[in-house]
Design a protein around this nucleic acid. Structure first.
Length: 643
RNA sequence: GCCGACAUAGCUCAGCGGUAGAGCAGCUGUUUCGUAAACAGCAGGUCCUCGGUUCAAAUCCGAGUGUCGGCUCCA
């Protein structure tokens, strides 16, 4: 409902994230790790009936299936190694994920980097031994007794849940499926590679805490993440990719490019340095120009708001803990965590006619949310942020056109950055509020608008909010990582009903408008973070904080440089002069490091002819360009907002 | 919030019980230079904070704060 919400699934996926693939490796459904007896003999008769699986049984079709199988097998091998060091370890689950695998353990003490090295050694030994993976099915009770007997309560819990589920469904209790390699046995549905020797080059990456079954109420286990690939080259490529992502990290580049910083006096809130603020202002000016052209009217509402507004919106009950609350004269106020309720106050400040609609109220709203301390992360997860928010009040018959216009707006804005927006349509959830017919109409209008794009889009059934269907917009950055930025959310009940918004229709009746919440950048903070990483700090010319650096070769060229600077500034272009006594080479180096698009070298020849020698950040050079020609060119490039 | 790691000069980092270090940046001087680092000198630190152990703490221990990697949450 609150568009561009940067805290909501902001980062859809990025390199290094490992939580993504848990869905199909759910503890109940999927490969689950298990306990290992020290030796097959310990396991007793359980092993006597083990049947060797053929390679065909063990593998899914296709190379991807094989890679997943190898990753899952790696998790087993890792668990084996961990059990070798901590025989009392209790095993959680150990699925394959994007780029690798993990396994969760309950251990007697926290793991250290040395432990990881030892575990890797254990894994290498197991791989060298080339144990076969063998599958075995036994009756449920036998399997349960096995894991119970080996002090593996998590495995027993998984089995009990499977049984309960079967009972509920009225089906037979499933047999217990296990895989064994060497002496290690795990509760698991497979598939696996044929033998441990098939496991490719791997590396254990990190240890992290993870709640058992993702519940804060359950114990926290230690999760070891690993990566594994078919070839050494692939492993190295993956590690290189991580390095590249690190190199582009906006938190690192933010310091390097002097854009913003964080300070512990206000955790989760960026301090914008002059260059960052210049970038910010450029983006804000650009979208404001679009909004003016597209019929928005900008408003501004208070940051400090009485709690009764949040009670009315319904958020006090649900999100009070995440709001910054304060008392004054016996009254309770909070910093606003969203803009929408206050926009209704302006909407309702006078009677609205059907002729006024659509009424598009935009606001660069500064929001504060008291996010839990452990969730804060750079610009992508913050406590203070600004949304390029808007609330559109409209008649139901205007919905489709308005959505089309908004999709066009997204294309226009994202085109400035060369970003290709992807749309995800979230439809009516089971718990939806409001009139079914209204939902149907809204959904068909949204669908028609999306269809009119002539481009494929994703549909997530039942992913809409309980009050409205929505379109989420994702972008893919230069490293192929996907980010959630914009949203367009049709609100059928929340603002219209709870705040009792009406307009007077042609018949003089007061009727309900529909509303749309939308944000194009989403959170300016996060959008800038994404841009920094996407461009690795080398912003398009039109929005670069410093578009050009004038580089006088010697001191006698400084006056000329100042003159050129003044001419550029007179055209609103963002330019600096490097008047330090460094050599030209060093000035160029600094400008390159700052990813400045144009370096304008001025020496005797140039001053004489009122030209510049242009070097761009790709290292290409163009000599003898007149000042006027360059100024016009830069002004044109800036106005065009080319990516 | 939870688990773990980390916190030393503006930045990147070394030092890990016995006088606080380097490179870059900064300042001063020399240099005035043609497309990714001129040369020299100087200055720069409550070693995150508070408490404890010790003859002695940047170093060991505890608490707090922040950051990072995850988990959970994300209107």
């Amino acid at each position: 409902m609150f568009p561009g919400d940067p805290t909501a699934s902001g980062r859809v996926a990025r390199i290094g994230d490992r939580e993504m693939d848990m869905g199909d490796n759910d503890a109940i459904q999927a490969p689950v790790g298990a306990a290992a007896p020290a030796t097959p003999e310990d396991a007793g008769p359980f092993f006597e009936t083990v049947v060797r699986g053929s390679a065909e049984e063990l593998l899914d079709a296709g190379a991807h299936g094989e890679l997943d199988a190898m990753r899952h097998s790696s998790a087993h091998v890792m668990a084996e190694a961990v059990m070798g060091i901590f025989p009392e370890a209790q095993l959680g689950i150990g699925p394959a994920i994007d780029d690798g695998f993990y396994y969760d353990f309950l251990l007697p003490r926290p793991l250290t980097p040395d432990d990881l090295a030892a575990i890797e050694d254990g894994m290498r030994a197991s791989i060298a031994a080339d144990h076969l993976f063998v599958r075995k099915e036994v009756p449920f009770e036998e399997g349960r007794a096995f894991f119970a007997g080996r002090n593996q309560p998590f495995k027993v819990e998984i089995l009990d849940d499977l049984a309960a589920k079967a009972k509920e469904a009225g089906t037979a209790v499933p047999r217990t499926s296990t895989y064994q390699h060497g002496s290690f046995v795990d509760l698991c549905k497979g598939p696996h590679v044929a033998s441990t020797g098939k496991i490719g080059p791997f590396k254990l990456m990190t240890v992290a805490g993870a709640y058992w079954r993702g519940s804060e109420k359950r114990p926290m286990l230690q999760r070891i993440y690993g990566t594994v690939w078919s070839t050494q080259d692939e492993l190295e490529a993956y590690l290189t990719r991580l390095e590249e992502a690190k190199r582009r990290d906006h938190r690192r580049l933010g310091v390097q490019l002097d854009l913003f910083s964080f300070h512990d006096v206000s955790p989760g809130s960026a301090f914008w340095h002059p260059k960052g603020q210049r970038l910010w202002r450029t983006l804000e000016t650009a979208i404001r120009e679009v909004q003016d052209r597209r019929g928005y009217q900008e408003i501004s509402t208070p940051m400090l708001v009485h709690k009764k507004l949040w009670e009315q919106s319904g958020h006090w009950a649900n999100y009070q803990d995440s709001m910054f609350v304060m008392e004054s004269e016996g009254q309770t106020f909070s910093l606003k965590p969203m803009n929408c309720p206050e926009s209704t106050i302006i909407y309702k400040s006078r009677l609205r006619s059907y002729r006024d609609l659509p009424l598009r109220l935009s606001e660069f709203g500064r929001l504060h949310r008291n996010e839990r301390s452990g969730t804060l992360s750079g610009l992508t997860r913050v406590r203070h942020f600004v949304q390029d928010d808007a609330h559109i009040y409209l008649r139901p018959d205007q919905l489709q056109d308005e959505i089309k216009a908004l999709l066009g707006e997204v294309y226009e804005v994202y085109g400035w950055f060369g970003l290709d927006p992807k749309f995800t349509f979230g439809t009516r959830p089971d718990k939806a509020l409001g009139d079914q017919a209204l939902w149907d109409t809204a959904e068909s209008q949204i669908k028609a608008a999306l269809d009119s794009l002539g481009k494929p889009y994703r549909i997530k059934p039942k992913d809409g909010a309980f009050y409205a269907p929505k379109i989420d917009i994702q972008i893919e950055d230069a490293l192929g990582r996907e980010w959630q930025t914009a949203t367009i959310q049709v609100d059928l009940v929340m603002l219209p009903e709870r705040f009792d918004c009406t307009y007077i229709d042609e018949n003089g009746e007061a009727v309900r408008p529909m509303t749309i919440h939308r944000a194009i950048y989403g959170s300016l903070e996060r959008f800038i973070g994404v841009l920094v990483e996407h461009f690795a700090g080398a912003f398009p010319v039109w929005c670069a904080p410093v578009q050009a650096v004038v580089i006088p070769i010697a001191d006698r060229h400084i006056d000329g440089a100042r003159e050129l600077e003044a001419l550029l500034k007179a055209r609103q272009l963002r330019v600096e002069v490097d008047s330090s006594d460094s050599r030209m080479q060093n000035k160029i180096r600094l400008a390159q490091e700052q990813k400045v698009p144009y370096m304008l070298v001025l020496g005797d020849r140039e001053i004489e002819a009122r030209t510049v020698a242009i070097r761009n950040r790709a290292g290409e050079q163009e000599n003898g360009v007149t000042w006027d020609a360059f100024i016009d060119r830069l002004a044109e490039e800036t106005a065009a907002r080319r990516p």
